[in-house]
Design a protein around this nucleic acid. Structure first.
Lengths: 134, 134
DNA sequence: AGCAAGAGTGAGAACCATTGTCAACTTCGC
DNA sequence: GCGAAGTTGACAATGGTTCTCACTCTTGCT
């Protein structure tokens, strides 16, 4: 198997803008929301580019994606690159990073116990944060 | 507050067909797959009707919905109506119903611990089942 | 059985988030 | 400064899901 081209990544105004917008918020945001934020901020970036950049960031492990109930993808720049989960506010998107060693182990065990391989899991918590409850 | 009309539900050939198709499989299936299954079986049902019926069944608690990685909704008639989770085969959709009292408690605790209310959680396991690994 | 009321259905249009297209434009190594 | 190749943006195209609306059944009542 020959080395697949490492695909060089260039720094562009658009990428910097998207990354900056993401790093500036604790909340999970949809691509469309980010696109709007950038527009208002003056950093005009094409919607397609926002999507592409987000995908790149996700692939690179800098950003996490989640699916809302209605199927929209929402993104967030996460502090820790290691595997972790989220406790997200349904109202404002505000998020707390969570990790649960116990749950990880449980998922793995239940999976193999039933003869499944390559086990992955989706574990996300949703609620209404203290601020939104005021 | 006066009793809102209970919305009577009528039994129709289409609903019976969809329910039957669902009850006949252990697997999670997409609306489109079910539509195709019904067509081949001779029970022609409009795609829109399949979607509507599935939604009704979900609302009634007879059917569970999940979202695949690519955003498609998949449905399954579940044996237990109580809250539970799933271990789903990424290849064939075959499913095992799971429950984890520990996890439930953990989710609840983590949530309140961070000041969140109305806590819900999404916990699903994905893997490749023994059969698909042959 | 006969009937009327209104829930249910289907074909196709409409939605809408996301992805593909492709010519024009930048970035970066030399 | 040059040029190869990665990037971008406007717009078309996808694809799952929902909406529309005229027509068809199920149901309850007689």
């Amino acid at each position: 198997m020959s080395t697949p081209h490492p695909a060089p990544v260039r720094m562009t105004r658009q990428r910097a803008a998207v990354a900056d917008a993401l790093q500036g918020s604790e909340e999970f945001r949809s691509a469309q929301q980010l696109h709007e934020v950038l527009r208002q901020r003056g950093d005009t970036v094409g919607l397609a580019t926002v999507y592409r950049t987000l995908q790149t960031l996700v692939d690179g492990g800098d950003v996490d994606v989640l699916r809302t109930d209605d199927g929209e993808s929402i993104y967030r720049w996460c502090a820790r690159r290691e595997h972790h989960h989220h406790l997200v506010c349904r109202a404002c998107g505000s998020t707390v990073e969570i990790d649960g060693p116990t749950v990880e182990a449980w998922a793995q065990m239940v999976g193999t116990e039933h003869g499944f391989a390559d086990i992955e899991h989706t574990i996300e918590l949703w609620g209404i944060c203290a601020d939104c409850r005021r």
